[in-house]
Simulated assay, not measured.
Amino acid sequence: MLDKVELIATSAFGLEAVVAEEVRNLGYDKVQVDNGKVTFTADVSAIPRTNMWLRTADRVRLKVGEFRATSFDELFEKTKALPWADILPENAHFPVEGKSVKSELYSVPDCQAIVKKAVVESMRKQYDTDWFTEDGPTYKIEVALLKDIATLTIDTSGPGLHKRGYRDWIGTAPLKETMAAALVILSRWKPDRVLMDPFCGSGTIPIEAALIGLNIAPGMNREFVSEKWPNIPREVWRQARAETHELARYDRQLEIIGTDYDDEIIKVARRNAEEAGVEDQIHFQRMDMRDISSKKKYGYLICNPPYGERLSNHKEVERLYRQMGESFAKLDTWSSYVITSDENFEEFFGKKASKKRKLFNGMIKVDYYQFFGPRPPRPKKEVAPIDTKE
């Protein structure tokens, strides 16, 4: 059985600090942050818990070993020396994938073949057999080489963690669920405040906000490849799922609004919200962005508008962003958050951002423009009258 494990939560570039904060909030404090990944040590229950709860990580990997390798012999011998039989059962299906960046060993297919052979040799000695059927549970191994450092991991997630299970149709230029959750988390939105997405598309940002507001674990209703691993007790998975139900705040009332000019995409958004179980928390309606309004004095506008890669010409982008600036100005006490790849966004929008954060939406480099509105006044505390009677 697995006991203490070293795990790596992978992430999009720019979201490492967000993922690290999520990991710490789950109670794991031995956290190391690097480009594209967050490494931490925990007991085996962290595998189901992090897979179910992490909103912004791409996947969770079990780290087997890390070492320097500049020759194929070195890669083979050091991989073979790792304790594979302590992790892989005899009938494990263990495909190998790989990647190499700025390393002497740049041929990924060769690295994959060598790691596969080394794992087989290691297990052959332990299990005293020359043949592995590989008809059991899947343990997908990755060999990642970065500047001649090889990191060997096993994927515990299966399909990426953005696959929540509620999005059956995503339209053009989709925003990953993990990125949408990150936009909401980075805004520091509070569930007692109104949130509006005037470019809601298939509803990803409003749905992720609703899951956050209700404290619903994003992975509570999906399966993970490591659920079939015999070295993680079923009881550990049962307890992790029970925790997701115990901590959900189904009774909380949220005010989340999603609008879009496309009637058909609004229907898709409603269907996705229903699949996610949050349809009662989000008001979707067809509306042109120029017509947005609210009676609420304080709120959050969070959106992923079309940008250069998604509109046909630059003039169209410029016109849209100028209209956004005029429309958002009507809600001048609200905070606004916009993700776009257009480096001239502030100029067209007509306002300088309070803060900018560099992110990657898929392979596209983007900026997250944050325009902070005024803080709402704190509610006055009631002061008990002074009794002057003696």
Rank of each mutant, 00 (worst) to 15 (best):
Gln112Cys: 15
Ala144Lys: 14
Cys111Trp: 01
Val101Met: 13
Lys140Cys: 12
Pro191Ala: 14
Thr153Trp: 08
Gly136Asn: 08
Val115Tyr: 03
Pro137Thr: 03
Tyr139Gly: 12
Ile154Trp: 10
Met196Tyr: 09
Thr138Val: 15
Lys176Leu: 11
Pro218Leu: 00
Ala182Asn: 11
Cys111Asn: 15
Ala113Gln: 14
Trp131Ser: 14
Arg164Tyr: 03
Val96Cys: 10
Trp84Leu: 03
Gln112Tyr: 03
Pro137Ala: 15
Leu161Asp: 04
Pro83His: 03
Leu146Ala: 12
Leu145Asp: 04
Ala217Leu: 02
Glu208Gly: 05
Asp192Glu: 15
Tyr166Gln: 02
Leu214Pro: 05
Gly158Ile: 00
Gly136Trp: 07
Pro95His: 09
Met196Val: 11
Ser202Glu: 09
Lys147Ala: 13
Pro174Ser: 08
Ile170Trp: 15
Pro95Arg: 08
Lys190Cys: 11
Phe199Trp: 11
Ser107Phe: 12
Gly165His: 09
Gly171Asn: 07
Asn215Ala: 11
Lys176His: 11
Leu88Pro: 06
Leu161Cys: 05
Val143Leu: 06
Ala180Gln: 06
Phe94Met: 12
Ile212Gln: 04
Asp192Trp: 13
Val184Asp: 04
Gly136Phe: 07
Thr153Leu: 08
Trp131Gly: 09
Lys99Met: 12
Pro159Asn: 09
Leu195Pro: 05
Tyr166Asp: 00
Val108Pro: 01
Ser202Asp: 06
Thr156Pro: 07
Gly136Asp: 11
Glu97Gly: 14
Ala180Asp: 10
Leu183Phe: 08
Val96Lys: 07
Glu121Gly: 04
Arg193Thr: 13
Leu186His: 08
Leu161Glu: 03
Lys147Thr: 08
Ala173Leu: 10
Lys99Gln: 10
Trp84Gln: 03
Val101Leu: 15
Lys102Arg: 14
Val119Cys: 10
Leu175Tyr: 06
Arg167Gln: 10
Ala150Gln: 02
Thr138Ser: 14
Ala150Met: 01
Trp131Met: 14
Ala144Leu: 14
Pro159Gln: 12
Glu97Leu: 13
Ser187Met: 05
Glu142Cys: 13
Leu152Val: 04
Glu208Val: 05
Val184Trp: 06
Lys190Phe: 03
Ala150His: 01
Phe132Ala: 06
His162Val: 00
Thr178Arg: 03
Met220Trp: 07
Asp197Gln: 04
Lys99Val: 08
Ala118Val: 00
Asp128Phe: 09
Gly98Ile: 01
Thr133Tyr: 13
Tyr139Ala: 13
Cys200Val: 06
Arg124Val: 02
Asp192Ala: 12
Glu121Trp: 04
Pro109Met: 09
Lys163Met: 11
Ala113Trp: 09
Ile212Val: 08
Met196Leu: 15
Trp169Leu: 15
Tyr166Thr: 01
Arg124Cys: 10
Phe224Arg: 01
Pro174Thr: 07
Arg222Ser: 00
Lys116Arg: 14
Ile205Cys: 07
Thr156Asn: 08
Arg164Trp: 03
Ile207Ala: 01
Arg164Cys: 02
Ser187Thr: 04
Leu211Ala: 01
Ala181Pro: 01
Ala181Arg: 01
Asp135Glu: 13
Glu134Leu: 09
Ala173Glu: 12
Trp229Ser: 06
Ala92Met: 04
Pro218Tyr: 00
Glu223Cys: 10
Trp84Ile: 01
Ile212His: 02
Trp84His: 05
Arg188Asn: 15
Leu161Gln: 05
Leu146Asp: 11
Leu105Ser: 05
Cys111Tyr: 02
Ile205Asn: 09
Tyr139Phe: 15
Ile87Gln: 07
Asn215Gln: 14
Asp192Asn: 15
Arg222Leu: 00
Phe224Asp: 01
